Computed example of a mutant assay.
Amino acid sequence: METFAEPGTGRVRSQSAPAQGRILGGVLTMTGSGISNQIGAGIGAHAFSAVGPAGVVAVRQLVAAAVLLPVARPPLHRFTWRQWWPTILLGAAIALMNICLYVAIQRIGLGLAVTLEFLGPLAIALMRSRTWLDMLCAACAGCGVYVLVLPGPSSDFAGIGIAMAAAACWAAYIVLNRVAGQRLPGLQAPAAATAVSLVFYLPVATYLVAQGSLSGPALGYSVVAGVLCSVIPYAADLIALRHIQPGFFGVYMSINPLLAALSGTIVLGQFLVLHEWLGMAVIVATNVAAILLAGRCRRRSVPASPG
């Protein structure tokens, strides 16, 4: 419940806080997006042996375009350059982010790949910090990531580097998705960006179809991954970023390593050791703290009484 001064009377009234409702809705949307994304990534990994990471990503983009374009019906021929440039960059970021993540999953596993990919949103949180408490939350999330990973001499540094490239793309995705979403209504931004990213993977899809690789279980796994990893998260993230600031989005999405670990355990049979669970506990605690701090800041933002 928030209070505000009623203009012209000096009386203070209470009202239910729609802003708090929007924050809660954004948090629930982001959580659903993360669950969908990580389960889809685990399912998609089952198709690597048949079509490879590029094949899974190609099908993902085909599925996303087939669903989002008819639903959103973006008038591409009427887009202005102000609308086109963030859409084009968003599509390129999606295309590169997906292939980097899937190659990293193939090399170092789902949990570690997603954890390193989180460095992108964490960077957004650090750059957009407003108070020392925000910085502390981001730092705690970073410590959680380190405890989770504990890199050593036996680490696959090529896989780690590819995962970090995915992190850079995810940071760009957050910023560009917000910009494009502000300039295009509804789902037009993710739909148009998906069409752009699809251009990069049409040759891959064409080659796999010609080779007869896209059939049977591999096709099924890839299609499910397309729905869970592309259609649902793209739409959900766009909706969430209309109500949540990018910095808070970046910190809260640190829950993805936990979701990825659970997906890896359930879908791929990848079990975690103690330090990995400890790191995830730190990350989840940071998420809770960030949500509480965001709610406190909202409650303190009471409109001032006019002159």
Rank of each mutant, 00 (worst) to 15 (best):
6 E>F: 00
8 G>T: 10
10 G>Q: 03
11 R>C: 09
23 I>M: 14
24 L>I: 13
25 G>A: 09
26 G>H: 07
27 V>S: 01
35 I>C: 08
35 I>Q: 04
42 G>D: 06
49 S>M: 08
52 G>A: 11
53 P>V: 12
54 A>W: 12
57 V>F: 07
57 V>H: 06
61 Q>K: 04
61 Q>N: 12
64 A>R: 07
67 V>H: 01
77 H>W: 12
79 F>M: 15
80 T>Y: 06
82 R>G: 13
85 W>G: 10
98 N>D: 11
105 I>A: 08
108 I>Y: 04
117 E>V: 00
126 L>V: 13
128 R>L: 15
132 W>D: 09
133 L>F: 11
135 M>N: 12
137 C>F: 11
138 A>P: 04
151 P>V: 04
153 P>S: 13
156 D>V: 06
159 G>L: 02
174 I>V: 05
178 R>N: 05
191 A>D: 06
198 L>R: 04
203 P>T: 10
219 L>S: 10
225 A>Q: 14
232 I>L: 13
233 P>L: 07
238 L>C: 03
243 H>F: 11
251 V>Y: 00
261 A>E: 01
273 V>M: 14
274 L>S: 13
280 M>F: 02
285 A>C: 12
290 A>Y: 00
291 I>Y: 11
292 L>R: 13
294 A>P: 00
300 R>W: 07
303 P>E: 04
304 A>C: 04
